Structures are given as structure tokens and as C-alpha cells.
Amino acid sequence: MLLQRNFLSLALAAGALSLASCNKGAGDFAKTQSGIEYKIFKNEGGKYSGREVAATGDATYKARMGKILALNVEYRTYKDSILFNSRKQQGLPMRIELQDVKIKGGIEEAIAMLQPGDSAIFRFNVDTIFAKSFKQPVPPFMKDKAATDKKAPSFMTMYVKAEKLQTRDEATADQQKQMEEQQKKMMAYAETQLKKDDVILQSYIQKNNLVAKKDPSGIYYVVTKPGTGAVPKQGQTVSVLYKGTLLDGKVFDSSEKMGNKPIDFPLGVGQVIPGWDKGIALLNKGTKATLLIPSSLAYGQRGAGADIPADAPLRFDVELVDVK
């Protein structure tokens, strides 16, 4: 998506920029009239130096309005836990259309202070920013403080590197080019990782004395109870009971956690991981089976949350309950 204005909502829905070179001798935070604390560093020939903004705002901002700013962003909680990192979680910079700042004290005003090439650290009082920018209560984890520091205000910290300023046409072309380059890198990485995963899965099969078949996609599957119904076709809705584990046996998700209710989804249209779209299509209605899925057909090099590491092959014990 080219234009992304609500940074924090994106970060919270998803769940580090290295500024060490900028922080040497940085001193205290400056503060805007609206209460944003900040440190901004301008890049001059590869060397960074501090830059303050006038109390009334950056006088040059009007000349940038209507253009697209590409930037990398990281959000951290009061206790320095990372909420979101655009480099790691998107692989591409965020792109923001710069518009008139209507809400002071929030993320829009902070971004308006940046010029291309700047690196910055912004610190927001969470009570203020949630009230002003998001019109909702502060999530409890954003206010998690040490017992000895209950009275201190909670902050959200935002690290930013402003990359470049572009017209809409320039930004669209640049984004398309970067997406194509990223796709090529991801495909090359997945091909290499698939070979590594295959060795791991074969070792797992041998160690656990499984009689498994291999699908051309790289999935291994073991039918533990044959079904007698039809094999689902692409686009049909299937109902599946499941338990997902890492190869060390750690359970990360299951139908049991959802009240033993099967999950329904249309097969082969990308609503689930590729390993499920391919693996469930191999089974008859009523079949119970074990699917061993390489990481490239699961959650890849990014993993999923705290439970599924990067490049993790997965095991799913499934039952194809129904085909609709």
C-alpha cells in the first residue's frame, strides 16, 4: 500500500533502526509546544549533527506537502519492547503523503518535522497520543512500568529514518521496483531454505518412524486414518480440525484452543498458509493426517509472533471434517 498514515495502528495490528551513530553526544530531548519530545539529526556528508525545530514548526514543511516521504520506522514501549519494525516486518520503507497537520502532539506532527535524510527519535506520552490520535484507551501493555516507578508517565518511542521525498508518480515507480527486487530475493531465499528444510524433515521422519509421502511442493504427509469422501477442489470450503506444533513438539495453535471447533476456509485462494492449501487438497473428506510443512510454505524467514521462529518447518495433525 503506497500511503500509510496511521503508523501506530499498523504496528499494533502486526504485534531496530540503528541510530547509535546519531546518539553520540546527543544530549537531552527537545520539546515541541504540543509536548512531543524529540531528537533530530541531519546528515551532512555522512556525518550527523543535531537539528532543532522552531516552536512554531518546520518552516520548510509547506514546500513538502503533497509529496510522498519514504521512511523506516520502529516503535517501542516504555520498557523498550519492540512493537513494530518496518525493515524487519515489511522489508520495504513506509510511504506517507505529507498533508496539513490537523492534530498537534501526535505522529503526524512528528513526521512533519522531518526532512529527507534525517534520523530521529520521538517520545510520546501514551495517554496523550491515544487520546488525540487514536480516540481509544491505552492498551495495558503500553503502560507496563516497574513497581518503583508507578507515578512516572508511560512513553511510546518512535525511531525514524527519513529516506527520500518523491512525487506520487516517482514513489509508485520506486515502490514497484523495490517490491520486484524483494520478491526475487525472497524466492531465491525460499529455494535455498527449502533444501535445508527437506533435510530436517527427512531426519524428523526417520527419527519418528513415520511412513510419509512427499508432494512435489515439498510437503510430506502421513495418512493416519483414511477417509472415504471426496477430495476437495480449489474454491470449495473445507472444515478442518487441527493441532499445530514445532518439530520439538511445542504446540502453537489448535482447534482445542478454539473450543474444538473446526476452522472453515475456501481452499486454494490464499486465506491460509500455502502448506495448508496444498496439503489439505491431498486428503479425502474424513481423512486424518499429519502434514510436515517446510518453512517456505509456512511462515518463512519472518516467522509468526513469539511462538513460530523464522525458518521453522511445522507439523500439523489435521482432520478434514467436511467439504462444502
Rank of each mutant, 00 (worst) to 15 (best):
Y75R: 09
P294W: 04
L2T: 01
S295G: 02
L320M: 12
A26T: 13
E97A: 13
S255C: 10
K324P: 00
Y75E: 12
A14H: 10
D118H: 02
Q178W: 13
R5E: 14
K102L: 15
M187H: 07
D215C: 00
K278F: 09
S154R: 13
M179L: 14
A188M: 12
K177L: 03
E108S: 15
K288R: 14
R168N: 09
L92T: 14
M158E: 09
Q175S: 14
V223G: 02
K150L: 05
S21L: 05
V323N: 01
A289P: 07
L2N: 15
I103T: 06
F122G: 00
I273H: 08
Y78Q: 00
G275H: 03
D28Y: 09
V101P: 01
F122K: 03
Q183Y: 11
D264K: 11
T192Q: 13
L8V: 12
K185Q: 12
K243D: 02
L241N: 01
T224G: 12
G35W: 06
D174Q: 03
V199L: 00
T287S: 09
V251I: 11
I280L: 10
G57A: 10
K31V: 05
D307I: 11
K196R: 13
D149A: 09
T245L: 14
A312F: 04
I103F: 04
T224M: 12
G235V: 02
A20R: 06
A59Q: 13
D307K: 15
K257L: 14
L320C: 03
A147K: 13
D144W: 07
Q301A: 09
D118G: 00
M186R: 15
Q90V: 08
I96C: 13
T224V: 13
G286N: 08
G106V: 06
R302S: 08
L246F: 10
K214N: 14
G300R: 00
T157D: 04
M179D: 08
T56H: 10
S217T: 09
L165V: 00
F155V: 09
K285Y: 01
G229R: 01
E256W: 08
D198T: 15
R87G: 03
D215W: 03
T157L: 02
R76D: 12
S296E: 08
D58R: 03
S18P: 04
P274L: 13
F134W: 09
Y220N: 03
L165S: 01
Q175D: 11
I111M: 15
A230Q: 11
V269A: 07
V321W: 07
V199C: 07
D144P: 08
A30T: 05
A63Y: 07
Q89R: 10
K151E: 14
I263S: 10
D28G: 15
D264V: 11
G259Q: 08
T245N: 08
D118I: 12
P153L: 12
S295K: 06
D264W: 02
A54H: 11
I68C: 00
A298S: 04
S86I: 12
Y61P: 00
A16V: 07
A289W: 05
R123F: 03
L3C: 08
A173F: 07
A289M: 08
S154M: 12
L19V: 06
F155Q: 01
M187C: 00
G105H: 00
